[in-house]
Design a protein around this nucleic acid. Sequence first.
DNA 1: TCCGTTGATGTAACTAGTTACATGCAACTA
DNA 2: TAGTTGCATGTAACTAGTTACATCAACGGA
Lengths: 316, 316
Amino acid sequence: MKRVTIGDVAVHAGVSTATVSRVLNGGLVAESTAAKVWASAESLGYSPNALTKSIFAGRSSTIGVIIRDLSSPFYLDLIRGVDEVAAANDSPVMLANTYRRTDREAAQVRAMDQHRVRGLITTADETADDHARRMAENGTPCVIVARTAPGLHSVSLDDVAAGRLMAAHLTDCGRSRVGVVSGSHRPTQVKRVEGLRQGLAESGLPQPQEVLVENEDEVDAAVGSLLHRVDAVVCTTGRLTAAVHAALTARDLKMPDDVGFLTVDDFPWASTLGISVVAQPSYEMGRRAAELVVEEPTAPERIVFQPSLIARGSCG
Amino acid sequence: MKRVTIGDVAVHAGVSTATVSRVLNGGLVAESTAAKVWASAESLGYSPNALTKSIFAGRSSTIGVIIRDLSSPFYLDLIRGVDEVAAANDSPVMLANTYRRTDREAAQVRAMDQHRVRGLITTADETADDHARRMAENGTPCVIVARTAPGLHSVSLDDVAAGRLMAAHLTDCGRSRVGVVSGSHRPTQVKRVEGLRQGLAESGLPQPQEVLVENEDEVDAAVGSLLHRVDAVVCTTGRLTAAVHAALTARDLKMPDDVGFLTVDDFPWASTLGISVVAQPSYEMGRRAAELVVEEPTAPERIVFQPSLIARGSCG
DNA sequence: TCCGTTGATGTAACTAGTTACATGCAACTA
DNA sequence: TAGTTGCATGTAACTAGTTACATCAACGGA
């Protein structure tokens, strides 16, 4: 049960712990000594304690990631990007899922700080920014995803452009009476709707009808309240795509013939279902976020990605 | 840049580090002293180093999870279960995604060991078992997911039962010529096909045609080779569901009229698409796996879950 | 007044490593 | 042969905490 320590290896090989440490980390050691040490380590089944290494280094090699919702394809792809870069840098990833419980986020950030993560990538909202900034002051690069934050790195989408892209596509498809289902008061949502408004206005089309929905089970009623006035339904959050889609099909509305449908964030079944989306380069965004952690730029960087339209016919 | 340590707090409060430690961890301290210490800690922005705590405890509070494929709904739900239990026990989760690169798995297990995780939950295959067993001997509970392993805890599905469940449903729907697409030689896959064979045999139906597919891009051809001989296609891995479904729709085959379709692992869009599945209680499995880590049973436990059928009409 | 008890706090050893510095020894030079 | 150089290695201090044990003052009872 007792763990094998560097001291045990040292005794077994008949050298000091300093020598063992040097062998393991590639210091200046005679070849014959190194061989003895490796043999001892092997035969004792020695596994160096990464925690101890970290405390000496003042910081662990782990990258912390706090995600609001792992079940979202956007975040999933984002993590894939983070993972890729982390793996290339021999950094394990510590993942915390808040399941949209905003009140847990500050605690998660604090936990990551206490674990002395090498850097933090988070989708937490403003409440946790103070703590993140304190971490940044202590030399832990913190990257905010999906929004910008003063004094912190950020990787986000040009949400206004996303909204305009939606407007442009709807215009192209000849839709004129647009209904929007948006997910919350978060800046992402607000800006996407804003972009949509701008785009429609510039095309000389009427402003969209908007419903704001907190929860998935409110979606059906919300969509119902829109339908008699619109010829296209837009959803500004990937999280509600399924619910909005279900609300439309439940009313036996065919897309694009009976109603146009456009949403954000690409997902695996979208092509099968023929759903058009405005997609974020989520994988790339994850990579970039992790790169910021690894590169530790001194000044806060704001990286903004451009959305792209994937037309699949659900708008006509 | 230099981190505030317990020593800094001690000096600021005019006490010893031992007293600060006692205040923070609830030892015997005078109320007036405690107040002073809290005030100092607060004003210096002290954040205790979790790594140092762990090294003294001999082990960290983190639970390690190694997952083959985060994009699979099964694993995603599993993690949700793990997360839930971990959060309830104040354990952060360290997640490693191997992206089906089996050769990386042993290294991941080793990394988790070096980080002295409190316990390990892994979907790695047999190659990494030796190392996991060594960890278990050192007192780190290791839980293997989706298969059993001698000397280790495991949480798995009764895969034979899953196969039989499929056979039963196909029989009920009047299908008699079954084609199977299975994903690999992994025990899970083999047992599911075995169960399917048993079930069909017991119903007096002919044995299924089987194709084994490693990669998603082989699916279309594989399905094509089955189609002229079968009236139902079964897929034994959730990973290939989309590809098999696409291969069928690409041939303009309607389910269930032209061909029956049955797969494993429930997923968000399955109900919209009307796809019947044999589901695993993935969330529960994740919870149970994490509970094994927390409870540290002395003898290896094998927990087997039962699958359930969710009929949505894709078989008739 | 003396002794024993109790509560609050400090001292120092401990966790498992790393690393600056000191030392020892052999080979080479003068 | 003495002095210098250089490599290999050990000693001990360091990382940031925890905790067993020692200390000490205040108090109560004899």
